[in-house]
């Protein structure tokens, strides 16, 4: 359903303004989020938080636009700061989540032997 909505969105000339399409997407994505995330076990809540947090660093792609040649100097500066903080969020978030999850998966024979 999201795909169907998405497919229409690159045509701003359509009858629906972006904000309406955007709200549709928001609504559906929130539902998908609730469905997917309620299934995450409490054991993994910390990695969930830091992983989800890294995903919220998606603003990085917005920050890239702000380094555009047609942006005024001050906007470019803000864009640079945005790129820095967003990259800290993305790179740090994914790496630290991987580090945590690595500890969860690393061993099981001992626990398995106990039954």
């Amino acid at each position: 359903m999201i795909a169907a909505v998405l497919a229409q969105s690159p045509e701003p000339a359509g009858s629906m303004p972006f904000v309406v399409i955007g709200l549709w997407i928001l609504l559906l994505a929130v539902f998908v989020g609730f469905e997917v995330i309620t299934k995450v076990p409490p054991t993994l809540h910390t990695p969930l938080m830091s992983g989800a947090n890294a995903i919220s660093g998606i603003t990085l792609i917005g920050a890239l636009y702000c380094a555009g040649h047609d942006y005024p100097g001050f906007a470019k500066f803000l864009g640079f700061v945005a790129i820095v903080v967003a990259t800290v969020n993305v790179v740090g978030g994914f790496l630290v989540t991987d580090r945590m999850l690595g500890m969860f998966g690393s061993r099981k024979p001992r626990g398995g032997a106990k039954g």
Binding site: F18, L26, G33, M49, N53, T59, G62
Partner: peptide
């Protein structure tokens, strides 16, 4: 920010994280 930039991916990713939190 997705609404500011008219970017669907930001809206989707943001919603997922918002729901998770």
């Amino acid at each position: 920010t997705g609404f500011v930039l008219q970017n669907n991916l930001l809206i989707i990713a943001g919603s997922l994280v918002g729901a998770s939190g």
